[in-house]
Design a binder for these strands. Structure first.
Lengths: 124, 124
DNA sequence: ATAGTTGCAAAGCATTTGCAACAGA
DNA sequence: TCTGTTGCAAATGCTTTGCAACTAT
């Protein structure tokens, strides 16, 4: 994978934010720095960066994918009122995988968990 | 919500199977019983049945939604080799929601978890 | 009677791709 | 130099929708 300016900017923009932008929003941000960048380039790079494990794709509900510059294993929370998505600080439960392997005979590689509810701004 | 023949057949087809068909596959099954049914009808009904809590929509990875006629809360497993999706029999961990509420100040309504790995056929 | 539903076809929207020009190694 | 990458535009694929004809209640 070559180190191109476009790819670098796309990765940087994801790294510096904690919201979880969709491709269109990210494209807008990248465009501030590279006015000629194309949607194709953004999508191609998101896929590549994901396949390399440098970023994560979130498919929450029935909307477009969101992208997360935090590559470490963590869970997500979606506010059902305002729609914001945030990382959860709780540590993922790995014993769960072992428990399921035990009970089912499946070989588990990884899991994800998503929580839904109201964020602190919206609960009041 | 009226009780139409189409809606009934769509729901039945989801209830009788444990695979988790996508809309196109379900459409094919419904078509065996109602040759004139349309895609629009299938999609419209899937959304309505989901909104009523009678079925569940699964958005796993970056493919089209899968649909689950089992409306009870449960987790899912996806085989990374053959792609099959199965329900997991383990009971969902509700203490987790309380724990996260405690740690974060969020109000959690529900959560989902998905496990990925190799099914018993594919692990050998 | 009448409001919800259907079939059909067209539209919508996120994402992917073919291709020629370009650029990083 | 030469293969990977970009920008552009067209294409793809899943899903939604407008509308007139139907149908459950």
């Amino acid at each position: 994978m070559r180190k191109t300016f476009q790819r670098q900017v796309i990765l940087e923009e994801l790294r510096v934010t904690k919201d979880h932008p969709r491709a269109a929003e990210l494209y807008a941000r990248v465009r501030h720095r590279i006015p000629t960048v194309s949607f194709g380039t953004v999508y191609r790079n998101l896929r590549m960066l994901r396949d390399q494990g440098l970023i994560q794709e979130l498919t929450l509900g029935d909307e477009a994918s969101r992208w997360d510059g935090n590559y470490s294993l963590h869970y997500h929370f979606t506010c059902q009122n305002c729609g914001q998505v945030q990382d959860l600080e709780v540590e993922p439960d790995s014993r769960w995988e072992a428990k399921i392997e035990c009970l089912t005979g499946l070989a588990i590689n990884h899991h994800r968990a998503e929580f839904y509810g109201l964020c602190s701004d919206c609960r009041n």
